[in-house]
Design a binder for these strands. Sequence first.
DNA 1: ATTGAACTGTCGCCAATTAGACAATTGACT
DNA 2: AGTCAATTGTCTAATTGGCGACAGTTCAAT
Lengths: 237, 237
Amino acid sequence: MCTEATLLRPTLQQSLWFSGLPEELQEAIAAAGAVKHLKQGQYLHRKDDKVDGLYCLLNGKLRVSNLTLAGQELILTWLQAGNWFGEISMFDGLPRTHDAIAEQDCCLLKLSNQNFELLLQNKPCLYPHFIRLICQRVRTTFKLIDEMASLSLKGQLCRRLLLLTDGLGLWPNKQSDALSPSYTLDISQESLALMLHSSRQTVNKILQELQKEGVLSVHYGHITLFDKSKLLSLSQV
Amino acid sequence: MCTEATLLRPTLQQSLWFSGLPEELQEAIAAAGAVKHLKQGQYLHRKDDKVDGLYCLLNGKLRVSNLTLAGQELILTWLQAGNWFGEISMFDGLPRTHDAIAEQDCCLLKLSNQNFELLLQNKPCLYPHFIRLICQRVRTTFKLIDEMASLSLKGQLCRRLLLLTDGLGLWPNKQSDALSPSYTLDISQESLALMLHSSRQTVNKILQELQKEGVLSVHYGHITLFDKSKLLSLSQV
DNA sequence: ATTGAACTGTCGCCAATTAGACAATTGACT
DNA sequence: AGTCAATTGTCTAATTGGCGACAGTTCAAT
């Protein structure tokens, strides 16, 4: 589906970074990329792999994670359509910083090493734009460190639930009315625990609390968020 | 002292990033900067300040930290001579990510916003080099997140002690022989606790253990490291 | 030498979290 | 409808680490 050029550009526009680029540069980037598909469960790359390209996710869901020394998966985040990634290795030539695995069937735009180099040679004015992309990454990561250190586990969970709706897999529910929009996150409590480096049991306990407080409701394999503003205020404790 | 041009360049060379630049670019950067002094205890900038320049620390020690919502200081790291910093805000124009305070009298090279812009205009080939600098920052930060999540407190402490000697304030002790070099870190247990977001008491307990194991010795206001390889192996638990 | 501030060493209590165990529930696939 | 794996809900015991308290130590400044 997303192999068709007519659907490519609208998907790319979902990225705030990309849509802010001058038309000419958008054109050049899209032209330098090739579409690539991944089946659910396939790895796009693993940590320490050598770099093979810069990617934009067009469709599906990618999980970005790491293995701890104890062999446990530590989930950094999930990527959704419109997210660009892989730029760090692309620019410094060093190995990948994380595993990237398809949690659903995925469709990607891939700029190969060679095409990427040519692109930069032809459009050196892209440099400042890519720097802004990387700066965003640094700021996000600094913020994460702050939150890991200063928020309670409950605060961290609330914060991450918001990030997952705002930044990633967000759908306004069809059946919800305008007054109280609700959002559904397709994620297991086990996965949330792996993201917070916490235990499933503790995550469950906190979710039960939040459910009693009317902030969200817990279901098999997903969570429905009701009260975004309350989640936000809880994200600061 | 470091106001003299003859001493400026050797100090700048201590940065691996800077010393890897072509002579012509080193020249241009040094020429674009002005020397600035800070007294002990003075803030260079605070989090959320608007950007005023790019810096290289020439002399002294700077503490980089953040306040948690509870008002507690969370130390990210210390900077030493040769370290460049402030590049994130410089490139994206957004406010500072951290507080920076002089822990000793400091001497800095400052590239003002204006001079920095001119420098980039005159030497656009600097872009890839600055990107590499920022990529380093991202990788360091990712690694920190991994370690915070996967290492025990003891492991984290050992890791940070190594980082503080390798990356920052390292002096081979004068009196040590070649066979067993030792390193002295001037840092209080309280500060270590603020870096690990832990308590002074717990840090003290761990340091006592490490002392019993012969890895280091604990003194008033400083720590002497004996066994770097053992610290490294402990950094993985 | 004396004082005082900063730092270290150590105790005990308490709250938060982990890990194991196991039952109950859900949803996909025959 | 029946089966099975994945997921959730909820106990318990054991552990970790935070925090207050307080004594002892070090160092610099008078």
